[in-house]
Amino acid sequence: CHSECLGNCSQPDDPTKCVACRNFYLDGRCVETCPPPYYHFQDWRCVNFSFCQDLHHKCKNSRRQGCHQYVIHNNKCIPECPSGYTMNSSNLLCTPCLGPCPKVCHLLEGEKTIDSVTSAQELRGCTVINGSLIINIRGGNNLAAELEANLGLIEEISGYLKIRRSYALVSLSFFRKLRLIRGETLEIGNYSFYALDNQNLRQLWDWSKHNLTITQGKLFFHYNPKLCLSEIHKMEEVSGTKGRQERNDIALKTNGDQASCENELLKFSYIRTSFDKILLRWEPYWPPDFRDLLGFMLFYKEAPYQNVTEFDGQDACGSNSWTVVDIDPPLRSNDPKSQNHPGWLMRGLKPWTQYAIFVKTLVTFSDERRTYGAKSDIIYVQTDATNPSVPLDPISVSNSSSQIILKWKPPSDPNGNITHYLVFWERQAEDSELFELDYCLKGLKLPSRTWSPPFESEDSQKHNQSEYEDSAGECCSCPKTDSQILKELEESSFRKTFEDYLHNVVFVPRKT
């Protein structure tokens, strides 16, 4: 048989008469490798580009789960590009990614509803959504962080984005990388972005840091009482949809009607710091009717980097990364020049730590249904340095008659930039024990000054392991946590139920 035959053949030295091919099969003959313009397919066939392209389009058009959109890589027609490569849609070739590779997620039936953290986790790592997304989240724990972890990498949506009755959302900033909504599939009414009845939605994105392009379709905003109209108009300008909307697409009466839409800028007039305090004062603000001013709200939190936005980490279910302080308005003076500047002394802060701070007014709604208010920009203030805590785990070892090696770990709280350490030492008198000992005694162990690591005695271990207080009263049991108490109650309830079950099964009433 021919060298490319495997198993047997019907005619000697003829690659077209093989029972099976050793390498690849091409047009009725066995070959060692697939010549151009053919590609290896499933490690035994040679196919042309049209064959591989037909497989790709067949799966793409069917949208069946589990099928493969075949691509070409290293002269092979394979189910998908290997790690580190992405497909070129024009020629199906796998090309190296520039940075992290995109991950295209194809949605069944063309859309997916995100109504819980669990459903959001199914899209973790996706960068391109081939379909439409509907966000409908009523509640949950730590929602802002969970949504950002699972949806934060999405850069492109081919269909539309719909935010509907998501009472738990305060902001859409968890879509931190969303840059493009194509609108290839539109919501009824030709809408590519749809926001309806979101009672706590206050911000779409921080438009000073976020760009969003909507290729096709219109915007729809109705019944978002805490979303200011200025935020919607800003989205029109940034996304390129200005002029597409009709009169009733953006409701003037049901958007922002319960919001404090600040239209003035508060400026800080005085800032002073110490290692654990920050004193702030800002310019006074009074609405047209000074009785509408209820006070100020001061927001602050630790910020290692200057990239904080107002609604980071917030949701309507209680999660809030900001510390909020309510401040009463100052006494009002008739003389504008003698107006008191409101302020606040922030206490209990960490030394040498940068804080993000902003302040906003708290006002009631005027009778004319106009909203007044003022808010400052987010500023960054760093507390002063102070003395560091003591170095940890000092170790001293003498390696000769004239040297001592000293080692330690950095302090747990540096409280500033540590530039150097101060080492103090003092000579001590020799131990009298060394002169009084009889060095001729056998088995004498000389006193040693070398360091030995501390260890816990058996008594201390027994005390720590004991669940009861000892007789001397030195140790006591740790208080039980809520989960331990709940577990004990469940076990007790189970024992009672099981005992009742045994009584009912074992003891049967005697027939009379």
Rank of each mutant, 00 (worst) to 15 (best):
G373Y: 04
L219I: 08
I327G: 03
D384H: 15
D384F: 02
K277Y: 15
Q314F: 04
Y223V: 06
A195N: 11
I405M: 01
M297F: 03
V104A: 15
G240E: 05
V390I: 09
F268Y: 12
Y194S: 10
S166A: 11
T254E: 04
A385K: 14
K375V: 03
S398F: 15
S173A: 12
L161I: 15
L143A: 13
Q339M: 09
S173Y: 13
A251M: 09
K209D: 04
G159I: 01
E283V: 15
G189W: 03
H341M: 09
K226Y: 10
L212C: 04
L108Y: 14
L161G: 01
E246P: 11
D289I: 01
N340K: 08
E156Q: 08
P287W: 02
P411V: 06
K337L: 09
S321E: 09
L133P: 01
P388N: 00
G373E: 02
L362G: 02
K209Y: 12
N320Y: 13
N130P: 15
R347K: 11
D326S: 07
N190I: 03
S260I: 13
P284L: 07
N200P: 05
W322L: 05
A251I: 09
G152S: 03
L186A: 09
D292W: 14
H222Q: 15
L204I: 13
S192Y: 00
S319A: 14
V170W: 14
T273V: 06
P225G: 05
S333W: 11
W282L: 07
N136V: 14
L196G: 05
P342F: 10
L108Q: 04
N307H: 15
T371C: 02
S119P: 06
W286F: 15
N150R: 04
T371M: 13
V363H: 04
I135N: 00
K253N: 09
D377Q: 03
Q382E: 12
I379L: 10
K242D: 14
G243W: 05
N211D: 10
N334W: 05
M297D: 13
D377W: 09
E237P: 05
P342S: 10
I181V: 03
R347L: 09
Y223R: 08
F311E: 10
D393K: 07
T309F: 07
S401M: 06
D289K: 01
A385T: 14
S239E: 03
K242C: 09
S321R: 10
F175D: 00
L293M: 05
E368K: 12
P329Q: 14
Y305W: 13
R179M: 09
L294V: 00
Q306A: 03
L178S: 00
L180K: 12
R179A: 08
L280T: 15
S239R: 13
A168I: 09
N211F: 04
G183S: 06
N334Q: 14
R247I: 14
A374H: 05
V238N: 12
L178R: 00
E146R: 15
Q382A: 08
Q354C: 15
R369V: 07
L107V: 10
K226I: 15
K301S: 09
S171W: 09
G131N: 02
E302L: 05
N141K: 12
N307S: 14
T241Q: 06
T118F: 12
L349S: 03
L151P: 00
Y305P: 08
C105L: 02
I181Q: 00
Q245Y: 07
K253G: 09
E302S: 11
I163K: 04
K267R: 13
L266C: 05
I357N: 00
V128G: 14
L362S: 02
G256I: 03
H210V: 11
S239P: 06
N255C: 14
I114L: 08
P329I: 05
D115V: 04
L133A: 07
D292R: 04
S398V: 02
E368P: 08
K112P: 04
Y194T: 11
L293F: 09
K360T: 04
L252P: 13
L280N: 01
S208V: 08
A374E: 01
L201E: 15
G159V: 01
P388H: 00
N141P: 04
T361Q: 02
E155A: 03
C228G: 04
D115F: 05
K103D: 09
K360Y: 01
A145S: 08
I250S: 10
G373W: 04
Q306K: 15
Q121E: 02
G343D: 15
P304T: 08
V170A: 07
T364D: 07
T254Q: 09
E264P: 05
K350T: 08
S321Q: 15
R176P: 06
L178M: 04
E246A: 04
T215Y: 08
E122Y: 07
E148S: 04
G125H: 15
N263H: 08
T118P: 03
V117F: 15
Q199M: 11
E122P: 15
S319R: 07
K375Y: 05
P330L: 11
Y372R: 02
Q245H: 04
W205C: 03
T309A: 06
I378R: 05
S260E: 10
T353N: 08
P394C: 13
F299V: 11
T364K: 00
Y300G: 02
R138C: 01
R247L: 10
K242G: 15
E310H: 11
R179V: 11
R182H: 15
T309Q: 13
K209N: 02
I379H: 10
N211S: 08
H210P: 15
L172H: 01
L219T: 06
F275M: 10
L294Q: 05
A259V: 07
Y223D: 05
W286M: 06
Y160T: 04
I405W: 06
K409A: 03
M235S: 05
A374P: 05
S396W: 08
L252V: 10
W352N: 10
Y191H: 10
L266N: 02
W352K: 04
I250V: 15
L280Y: 01
K277W: 14
Y191E: 05
L294H: 10
P287V: 08
E368S: 11
Q121F: 09
G140K: 13
E231Q: 06
V325L: 15
Q258V: 12
P342G: 12
I114Y: 02
W322F: 04
A385E: 04
R370L: 05
R332Y: 10
A259W: 14
S116A: 14
D315S: 13
L294P: 02
Q216H: 12
F365P: 07
L349T: 11
V128H: 15
L172K: 00
T118R: 08
D257H: 08
A168R: 15
L294R: 05
F268R: 00
R291N: 05
T361N: 02
W408H: 00
Q216L: 13
G313T: 10
T127G: 15
L107S: 10
W205H: 13
E184I: 09
P287H: 04
Y285T: 02
L219E: 07
I114M: 11
S173G: 09
R281T: 08
R244V: 13
N263S: 11
R165H: 04
N255V: 04
E302V: 08
A385R: 09
L229F: 03
W352S: 12
A149S: 06
S333H: 10
T323L: 12
I405A: 05
I181H: 01
T127R: 13
P394I: 03
T383R: 00
R347D: 07
R244H: 11
W344G: 10
S260Y: 13
N150W: 12
G256T: 02
D292N: 04
F193P: 01
D377V: 08
